[in-house]
Design a protein around this nucleic acid. Sequence first.
DNA 1: GCGATTTGGGAAAAGGTTTTCTCAGAGGGA
DNA 2: TCCCTCTGAGAAAACCTTTTCCCAAATCGC
Lengths: 351, 351
Amino acid sequence: MPSDAEPAPVSAKTPVTLREVAAAAGVSVATASKALNGQGRMTAETRERIRETARQLGFRPNHLAQSLLRKRSFTVGLLTNDTYGRFSLPLMAGVSDALVDNGVSVFLCNVEDDPRLGQMHVEAMLDKRVDGIIATGKRIDRHLPVDLSNLRVPVVYAFTQPDPGAVGLVSDDAGGARLAVEHFLRLGRRRIAHVSGPASFAVVHTRAQAYRDVLEEHSLPVSEPLLGQWSEGWGRDAVAKLFSNGRGREGWPDAVFCGNDQIARGVIDALRERGIGVPEDVGVIGFDNWEIVAEATRPPLTSVDMNLAALGREAGLALLSLVGGQPAAPGIRKLPCRLVVRQSCGRPPGG
Amino acid sequence: MPSDAEPAPVSAKTPVTLREVAAAAGVSVATASKALNGQGRMTAETRERIRETARQLGFRPNHLAQSLLRKRSFTVGLLTNDTYGRFSLPLMAGVSDALVDNGVSVFLCNVEDDPRLGQMHVEAMLDKRVDGIIATGKRIDRHLPVDLSNLRVPVVYAFTQPDPGAVGLVSDDAGGARLAVEHFLRLGRRRIAHVSGPASFAVVHTRAQAYRDVLEEHSLPVSEPLLGQWSEGWGRDAVAKLFSNGRGREGWPDAVFCGNDQIARGVIDALRERGIGVPEDVGVIGFDNWEIVAEATRPPLTSVDMNLAALGREAGLALLSLVGGQPAAPGIRKLPCRLVVRQSCGRPPGG
DNA sequence: GCGATTTGGGAAAAGGTTTTCTCAGAGGGA
DNA sequence: TCCCTCTGAGAAAACCTTTTCCCAAATCGC
């Protein structure tokens, strides 16, 4: 009965310990440990026999015991206040990816905007001896409601405001805005408007400044960005302002760079309702590349993607190297955005 | 200098151990442990002195050591394959809420649809001695790509297909559909259509059947549900079918119950483009109550909310009671939906 | 004043693993 | 044959906390 040879070692009800493996193999726990970890000296025969025994018994080392001894838990905490998830999800996925590949697990800690909750989570993580903490948020210019300075574990900030002297990763919003405006220029568009979110967001100004810079570099007229809300409704309202009859048809923009995809969707909808063709008459570019929105617009929306998954991955790796003792240059590192071209801008004249 | 009395015990670089507390207080570790945990017998004075010492030193017990001893890690794993997050995020938030209140941390494990990744995560969790596992997904009628039967820890399934004999929590889709259709009926609407997603989803049939049931209970004509995609585009196409001239104006529906909010948005947009008034001429109800969509439609969309956060909370509590040794009734428990009324259905005739 | 009970607190084991010593035996050189 | 060096493997400490058992001193009853 060869099929009975392996008695299904998969997860018995009670975990088998190293001591049991050692007993079964007729050696001491010390030898068993060394055999399984490739440490110490022993005959190849002994080593293999112990390994085989462990395999048959389905032995898996208890990470709690290992962590206790090594003072390294292979666990990190991920702090976020983005319950909504549009930004934090790809970020978290990236962090998780990078860490799981290195055998590190991730504690998910939602702190909302509640300092008390944040404090609780941080203490719980510290008590569980996480190797490090990644702080993420929903906007770059706000702190999480928790104090992460002077912790005894390294901290990396991703897509949220870092403490001074800490390691932070954010998207290069200015670069992303440049991508958008330069794309318009390559397509031959010259009267480019910018519709964005509330002035209280730092990124609004960063992107607006990049928009101005590009136009000035090309000696093109800069029209003052229209700031409002991050909503479709504001996008529609902005179209009413930009395409008012008072300005005369020739004063109308031939391109609109929007601060996010929802605004862009409002802009596209309003343009269609006015009988203005996208992309024939006006090109539109959004920001965030929120696929569910960008692919539902008519036509599908060209948008700037902040590469948040990659950012999360970088954050994970940065934390890992800090945990490993590598000194990382403190300060904010900006990661490039990319433009995802769909159909809301048309083709270049020659294309 | 009274302000120097407390030397900022917050998180020194190296954690202070019970042994150090004991030494500082001039007692044994055993006594120190008992003093801090309210166990054993000693003078109130001794107990308080030890506690005060611990406080001053900023002592926090090492959970790894505690877990090792208690065989309980106060940690659970959360498995999901919903990278997109529309469903899993509120679910996760609910789970997290329920658990954090009980001092339990959550490992986030994204398994995509990759069995190998799923296996890795489950093994990592088991090695880290999680107390239990919560499996969540993006649809009720599919298994996660991992085998969770015969684990040595309890498992609870939330919003994903449970193993037979396991504890599963899902939304009551039939009940949710009833809420929608009955709402239409209360408003005096009688020619109610149903536009839903692909036939490959079990919920599509569940909701469609509930739709039929309610109409039949009221002896109203049932028109066959239109099945298509979960997209705005399909919503628009469905309107073209439902409101074709061939049917004659009197054959047009006066209400459309949609399988999700994106379909509903497509329906509303298409109706507006045809000059059909919502809610005056036609009422529309969506499903999922995805706020970002429901609040952006014109008018804002009335929608069925699956209460996923509550579902997550229940799942967390269910797991906790299993971990605590309470035997839970296996099988699927359905949690009620609720109707979120906005403006896409109008008011009742008398209201 | 003496035995019995209570009181306050400590010693030690347990939990599972890793790592440093230590040590017995085998082999090699003189 | 004797001494030295290797080799293979085990004993024990360490990580940090909890808990059981135990003991000395104090208190009580008579």
